[in-house]
Design a protein around this nucleic acid. Sequence first.
DNA 1: CGATAGTTTGACACAGCTCAATAGGCGTGG
DNA 2: CCACGCCTATTGAGCTGTGTCAAACTATCG
Lengths: 242, 242
Amino acid sequence: MNLRQDIHNSEIPVLCRSCEARHRGLCGALGSAELLALAKNSSRLCIQPGTELIGDSESVESFSNVLSGVVKLTKTLSDGRQQIVGLQFAPDFLGRPFKNESALNAEAATEVSLCSFPRLAIERMMRESPELERRLFRQTLRELDEAREWMVTLGRKSAGEKIASFLLLIARNIDPAAPAGSRTASFDLPLTRADIADFLGVTIETVSRQLTRLRTEGIIRIEHNRHVTVDDLGQLEARSGR
Amino acid sequence: MNLRQDIHNSEIPVLCRSCEARHRGLCGALGSAELLALAKNSSRLCIQPGTELIGDSESVESFSNVLSGVVKLTKTLSDGRQQIVGLQFAPDFLGRPFKNESALNAEAATEVSLCSFPRLAIERMMRESPELERRLFRQTLRELDEAREWMVTLGRKSAGEKIASFLLLIARNIDPAAPAGSRTASFDLPLTRADIADFLGVTIETVSRQLTRLRTEGIIRIEHNRHVTVDDLGQLEARSGR
DNA sequence: CGATAGTTTGACACAGCTCAATAGGCGTGG
DNA sequence: CCACGCCTATTGAGCTGTGTCAAACTATCG
C-alpha cells in the first residue's frame, strides 16, 4: 500500500513537479497520464539574452512554455526599422498553432528558461484534449487584448505617456514581491533602452530623456541603469495617459 | 424519393442558404442540424453607419457574423483620444468568447448587415462542436496577426507610409471585383477622414495632406471624396514601407 | 587600465500637430 | 431654382515634440 502510494505520486513527472506552468500555465490542462507522455518529449532549455528563438518566416517545429525571463516578439520592416509587438512572461506559451511558419521573430530579452516540446506532440494532444486547446485559445485572446491595448499606446500617447505605460506594464508582470494591488514596485528592467525604444515606437534618446525626466521629478528612482523603484504607482498611472 | 430529397434540401435553413458566412465564415463549421438550431435563434440586422454595436465595458449578450459592411473596433483614453484597434469585414465574427464584458467599442463604419445570435446559443454549440471552437480560435489568431502587423505601422511608419498601408489594407479587403493578385484596385473608402486618422494614429489634416500628395503624384485617383482608384498597386506598396 | 557597449546629454532639424480659414457636397426650405 | 446651413474635407501658417547627429559619460570586463 505504501508502495502503491509511491507509484501514484510518481505519476507526475519529476520535471513537472515544481513547474509553474503546471499550475498557472498550459500544462494545468493536462492529466497526469498526458503530462507523462508530454514530459517524455520535453526538454528544459536555458537561454542567454539575445538568442533568437524563432526566426521570421522560419518553420517552427517546437512549442515552449516560458518558465522564467522575458521573450520579445519583434517584426522588422525591409529597411531595418523594428517594432516589438509583444512580450512573453512566465508562464506564457510560445508558438503559433495551425501554422508552422512564423510571421515574427522571438528573441530572449533576458536570460530565459523554457520547457520545449515538439510541435507534433502538442498538436496531437490538442486534438485529444479540448481543455488544452481551450487554454491556448484563452491565451491567444489575452494576447489579442494586450496587442490592442498597446495599439492605443503606440498610436495615441506621447513619449512621456508611453514610458509611464511601459513601466507600469513591467511592474505588473515582473515585480517578484508585488502583492496584487500594491502601490509600490521595484524591479529590474528586462529590456535595454534600445528594446524599450522598439517597443514604444520611439528612439533610444527619447526613452532616455523621458526616464531622466521621471527620475528628476521624483516619480521613479533608477539604480545601475536597470533597477527601477516606484514609490507611488498612482503617480505613474496619472502620467500613463490611461 | 423526390419528397425525401426535398426534405433533405430543406434541412438548411432558408436564412442560411445564400449566406456567405456559411461558406467562408463561422457557420461552415456547423452541420445542417446545428445550423437549423442556431437559425431558430438568429436574426438579421441592418445597421446604419455610426450605430454603436458594443459599448465599452458593457456586457455583451450576443454574437454576430458580419455579412456586409465594415465594423470598426475602437478604444478611447480617458481624455477622449481615440484609436481604432481593428476593422471587421464580412464574414468576420463579432464577439468575445469567455468574457461577457467588452474592453472595446464596436461601431458600424458603413451600413452593416449582421446575423446575430444569443451568446448562450454559441457557447453551447462551442462546447458541443470542437470544429466551431476551432474556427473561432483561428479567427482570433488571424486577428492577433493583423493587430501585430498594425502595431508596426503605428509604431514605425511615417504618415505617408501609414496612408499607403491603409489603402492597401482596404483594397485587399473591399474591392469587390478584385481577382486575387490583381495589380489594380477601385473601391469606396469605408471610413471618413476622421476614422482613418483614428486608425493610423495621426490627425485628420495629415490624412488629407497625404492623400492629396498621393493624388498629385498620380499614385491614386479620388472621386467624390470617397472613391479611390489605384492603377498600380505596386507603386502603392513601394510607398507602404513594408 | 584601456576597450567596448550601453546610456545620457546637447544642439539643431523637420515631420506632423494646432489653429484658422476656405472649399465642396448635400439636404432643407423658401 | 437658388439660398442657406451643416458637415466633411482641404489648404495654409506657424509651433512643437520627437528624430537626427554628435559628443561625453558610465559600467563592465578582459
